[in-house]
Simulated assay, not measured.
Amino acid sequence: SIFTGQIAAALAAGNTVIAKPAEQTPLVAAAAVRHLLAAGIPGDVLHLLPGDGETVGAALVADPRIAGVAFTGSTETGRAINQSLAARPGPIAPLIAETGGQNAMIVDSSALAEQVVADTLVSAFDSAGQRCSALRLLYVQDDIADRLLPMLAGAMAELRIGDPALLATDVGPVIDEPARQALERHAARMATEGRLLYQCPLPAGAEHGAFFAPRAFEIDSAGRLEREVFGPILHVVRWRADRLDAVCDEIAATGYALTLGIHSRIDETVRHVLSRLGVGNTYVNRTMIGAAVGVQPFGGERLSGTGPKAGGPRYLHRFAVERTVSIDTTAAGGNASLLSLGEDA
C-alpha cells in the first residue's frame, strides 16, 4: 500500500519514522503498524501518530526535527506542506509528494469498443473512483461516440454496489460523508452544465453508509472541471478526428500529469499523443490503474507530484543523503609508490 510503502522506504534508508495516516483511516493504519512491529521493526524507530491534518499534520511539518516528508493526497495539501517546509528555520527538508490527477483517456475510431468499455469501467469505478490514478475524463472520437456511449451505459447498469468485503460487489462507498456530499454537489452542477449519460441505482441499504451512485456525464470540455473530483464520476468529451492536438492541449491545460490512457490501434497516433503529453504513467490499450511496483514505477509531475516515482530506481535514494570522503594518502607519510606496485613486484 501507499502507507506501508512510504514507511518501508524511509526505514530501509536508515530513518526513524512518524507515520501520520489520513484522519479517515486511523484503524487501518494502526493495524498496518502493528504488523510491521510484529515483523520485527523496533518500536523506537516507528511511531504511529493519528490525528487531523490541521493540528497534528501541520505541527509535524513545522517541526525542524523532521528531516523530510513523504505525502500522498490532494494537490492543495501538498502545496501547503511545501510552503510550510520552506518557511521553517533550519535545514531545508525534502518533500516527496504524490498528489492529484485529472486523468484522461483518449479513444480514437480505431479502438476496439468492447475493450474500451471494459477498461473504462475498471479505470473509472474500481475502488469507487478513489484512486489518484482513476479515469476522470474520457475523450471519445465523434465517429464512434454514438455506438460506444450506449455500450458504456449498458455496462454501468451491470455494476453491483454494496459491501466492499463481498466478492460480488463492484463499487463500495466513498471514504466518508463529507466526500459523498462533495460528489453530490459536483454531480448537481454537471447535471446543469452537461448531459447525464447514466446513473447507477443505489440498492436497498445504501442509506446506511457513504454510498454515491456512480454516474457518467457528457460535457463539452475539461474546462468544466475546476479541480480533481475524487470519486465515481466519469466525464465524457467528444472530439473530431481533426482535433487531436486540441484534445492534447486541453488535457495539458488542466495542469495535472499523473496518468493517461490511449486506446488506438494506430501506432502513429499513439506516438503523437505521447510526444504531445508529458505524463507520469501512460497506458495504451488497457486499464489505467494498478501500476505494479518494480515494473511500472508510479508518480506524476507538474500538479501531480514531485517525484521520484514510487517503486522506481531513484525512490529509495531520496530518503537518504549522499556524503563523500576524500583522503590524500601521500599526506600520511610513507612510500606512496608502493601503492602502484603490481602483484608480481
Rank of each mutant, 00 (worst) to 15 (best):
S1Q: 09
Q6R: 09
Q6I: 05
A8D: 05
A9E: 08
A13S: 11
A13P: 02
I18N: 05
I18C: 11
A19C: 08
K20I: 05
A30H: 08
A32V: 13
V33M: 03
A38F: 05
A39D: 13
L48R: 02
D52G: 03
V56A: 08
V56W: 02
A58M: 12
D63H: 08
A70D: 06
E76Y: 04
N82R: 07
R88T: 05
L95K: 00
I96Q: 00
I96K: 00
A97W: 00
E98N: 11
N103T: 04
A111T: 13
L112E: 14
E114R: 03
E114V: 10
D119S: 08
S123R: 13
S127C: 09
R136Y: 08
L138N: 02
V140W: 06
D142P: 00
I144Q: 05
D146W: 00
A153R: 08
L159E: 09
L159M: 11
P164V: 10
A168L: 12
A168V: 14
D170M: 09
V171I: 15
P173D: 04
I175F: 12
I175Q: 13
P178N: 09
R180V: 10
Q181W: 12
Q181R: 15
A182L: 11
A182T: 12
A191I: 06
A191L: 14
R195I: 15
L196D: 00
A204K: 12
G209T: 01
F212Q: 14
E218L: 14
D220R: 15
D220K: 14
A222P: 15
L225I: 15
E226M: 10
R227F: 05
R227V: 03
E228I: 15
V229Q: 13
F230P: 07
L234Y: 04
V237R: 04
A241P: 02
A246N: 07
D249L: 06
A252D: 05
A257K: 11
L258W: 02
L274W: 04
L274M: 14
S275H: 09
T282M: 05
Y283F: 15
Y283M: 12
I289D: 03
A292G: 02
G294Y: 08
V295R: 07
E301N: 03
S304P: 09
G307S: 14
P308N: 11
K309T: 03
K309V: 02
A310R: 15
H317K: 12
R318P: 04
A320N: 01
V321K: 00
V321I: 00
V325L: 15
S326W: 12
G333N: 07
G333C: 09
S337K: 08
S337V: 06
S337P: 00
L338Q: 15
